[in-house]
Design a protein around this nucleic acid. Sequence first.
DNA 1: TTGTACGCGTTATCAA
DNA 2: TTGATAACGCGTACAA
Lengths: 348, 348
Amino acid sequence: MTTRRATISDVAREAGVSPSTASVVFSGKTPVSDATRQRVMEAATTLGYTGPDPRAASLRLGRSGIVGVVVGSSLNYMFLDPVQRLMMDGLAEAVAPLGAGLLLLRSHSDIENAPTITSAPLDAAVLIGCDAPLRDSLETARQRGLPIVVIEGDAGPDVPQILLDNREAQRTAAEHLRSLGHERVAIVTLRASSDLRGGWLRDRSDITIDVTRERLDGARDTYPDAPALVTAGSSIDQGLAAGRVLFADPGRRPTAVIAQSDLLAAGVIRAAEEADLRVPEDVSVTGFDGVPVDGLAPYELTTLVQAPTDKGRAAGAAVAAMLEGDQPASVLFTCTFRVGNTTGPAQV
Amino acid sequence: MTTRRATISDVAREAGVSPSTASVVFSGKTPVSDATRQRVMEAATTLGYTGPDPRAASLRLGRSGIVGVVVGSSLNYMFLDPVQRLMMDGLAEAVAPLGAGLLLLRSHSDIENAPTITSAPLDAAVLIGCDAPLRDSLETARQRGLPIVVIEGDAGPDVPQILLDNREAQRTAAEHLRSLGHERVAIVTLRASSDLRGGWLRDRSDITIDVTRERLDGARDTYPDAPALVTAGSSIDQGLAAGRVLFADPGRRPTAVIAQSDLLAAGVIRAAEEADLRVPEDVSVTGFDGVPVDGLAPYELTTLVQAPTDKGRAAGAAVAAMLEGDQPASVLFTCTFRVGNTTGPAQV
DNA sequence: TTGTACGCGTTATCAA
DNA sequence: TTGATAACGCGTACAA
């Protein structure tokens, strides 16, 4: 068992050809006579050689076929969100033709020795969201000259971004509610910062996560004084908890709730049901994302529909372009407003 | 911009030391005088050198710090399941101290050029589940001499497995139902094969996915004739669809449903509510996994509690051991039966 | 404590 | 169509 694995030189020797010829047989970059190919292949089988060592190839080629995806939170949390899942799917799909796969990296980890954007053999890095710890990753990455793409976050100039019209889209939903006559409106936000605690938002500047702030701004363009309840993140349970707070006092409850994600909206609806409030008769609820929420039927959310898979694909395309030496432009995606059955006229 | 990136030799030259000394400054493997270190660091800053190139290091060291995770389905689908998410978290956590990260690979992809277990610079591979396409990956991996660990699947001897007592655990739940007097029991299964179509199970041998078959066997140990409805996978919506089928005919509906996952169980419960059946008064439902189901409250499932994070950690530990040259043993995890409020006595 | 020399396994280039 | 050569950038015995 201590026998060294065969290398391409071994195969070449066994086949009676030069290493470069053997290499070409495997890469197919140059025509090779059938006879030679045959001999090399046989030699490979004999020696149990299964193809070039990817490590050596990546040193030689200067490409590892690995795209780092820097996520801020645990995988469990991150992938709870259907938007993130779909985005990752789109990204994976878009980088696959490059022969690249996705390496999951955490921007911040307590674990000693954990892999980082610097220690891993990356061809490029994709940053999702943009928070303080993420900006660190960013700095080291750009010093390395590593191609970087940022999804929904600002990374300064020169870094292509994949953006969403969060503010404008959210404003559309708010105006929809206003047109239905709603005045007492509450906002349920996504996570505001790396701090996981929720609660009533005191100051807009407490929000360090771009998406959250942008959607908040959009809602407040229409309802400047709407109170905002911050959650720990996009999940039904977080929405449920927020909803319970909102509906606790029957006298002061909002007639409409703007949730910053469909999952949160689903939770708010569940809280409304608990409080014996009918949706949309007693309370209207809007979501954001337009993703299928597992188990939300029969409700169909009034929401902003985005295309997370396309966002992922766009990020992948940007990566591909940068690997080609181009400097891709940023891309702005637009949401579509979809009216479902969770919003209706305000009760008089 | 065409200037080559600085290498450690450049830094050494700039600092007036030899490359090996500069190398040692970065690796810390050998003591270096403070003066020298200082000079090297300054030279590095001057040249914009950010540390050793991971590609070259991985060739030299024979380790890339990358563990491949081979998944059978789309990321969106795979990470829909909380069990998988938690497992991945445990796995990531366990390999991080090795300086390793997780590279997502698909066992089967239509995309030309997609990265594979062979083309990626892996230190080890973890296979999740075990289906026909996965067995292919397996064969090539073991020929490479790549350390492999399989989670819930059989990969032949020599391959450490992380197993769950699916059959015994499921039998426990079935016996619980029998003790409550249930006779008309239906089973709602996980996906049966790479084929996504669902429907009534005709033949046990149609199931090529181990987990599904094992849990089925466990249920049938107690209820040999229980009909089984196959779904396309673990989700609330799939459970809802299955439940609708089961409860369609009021005269022939089961008094208890054994769902092979908590998500499916949640869907079945929702279907029961739709059909105006009370849980557990009119129909009992058991799940499997014991994970928090987002939005299932106030129900607390009667279920088999497993520890997916620990399973992931165990897989990571096995990987670590194999990288040390050891041959770790397989690990069998055991479920705990937890009685919730979704099972009760059969109606007479 | 520092430097020399070599090899890790490939593949691109160019000449034959 | 094939072969010789030279990197790719680093880490580490070993010698000094």
